[in-house]
Design a protein around this nucleic acid. Structure first.
Lengths: 119, 119
DNA sequence: TTCATGCTTCCATTATTATGGAAGAATCGA
DNA sequence: TCGATTCTTCCATAATAATGGAAGCATGAA
């Protein structure tokens, strides 16, 4: 994954409405939800919602699937996976730092090893 | 974690320079790096870098630690953990969907269960 | 065809963010 | 105290993004 792609995905999520939409879809599972349902659930006007769904689609964080008159949007779990992996890549230069992103964090900060600050 | 906090953190990462800075610090480990070193590494002018470091600090994704004349910035692994956890919360409404963020994704998309689209 | 429904595109307005030069601290060595 | 080094704040400019009403398009029902 390229950094520029990650930026697009992060930017897509860095907006309250879009983050709510995405999280709703993450919970909804692979069936997804229609814009109407999302609008109803989150109280976002149709035009605004459409704009945000397009942003999330552009980032490939969600998929759209036409089903008769309805469009079903669903979370793209694979893309999200890759994004999360990208953020923790080469964490701590390979030393074990107990970084377990999918876990409720419970103070996993290793003691700093003392080392002289020098140029 | 509140959605608004997540938005702040995601926005902090949704910028190419800042994402590069953050990833550099993730790799650097708990000792962190000085702005001088980061600037040298990424070729970002001092003023711009300072601005971005402030953004990352505000989001609490990085910590700053003064050490004599130098400031050491380091990744806040715990915050990142919480952010990643937040994104995958209640994933697929509890059904197993094999979402393992810290793993290289290898096509973990379950078959969609058919279900009628209805209001 | 005609109508209702579901969703998108258009567009103008408003708000937020990025950039980097210049000047201003703060710290340390001599 | 002086000067060098390191980093931050200030500021103006430029660029990008969010919002939602109105109009448009596509689908399906009758």
């Amino acid at each position: 994954m390229k950094a520029s792609d990650a930026v697009i995905q992060l930017a897509a999520l860095a907006q309250e409405s879009r983050l709510n939409i995405f999280r709703l879809l993450v919970v909804a599972g692979t069936d997804g939800l229609t814009p109407g349902k999302i609008s109803e659930e989150l109280g976002i006007p149709a035009a605004t919602l459409s704009f945000h769904l397009k942003e999330l689609s552009r980032a490939e964080l969600i998929d759209a699937r036409q089903e008769s008159r309805y469009i079903h949007y669903s979370a793209n779990y694979q893309q999200m996976n890759q994004l999360l992996g990208f953020l923790t890549e080469k964490c701590c230069a390979g030393k074990s730092c107990e970084l377990k992103p999918n876990t409720t964090a419970k103070g996993s900060s290793p003691k700093p090893k003392r080392k002289q600050a020098s140029k």
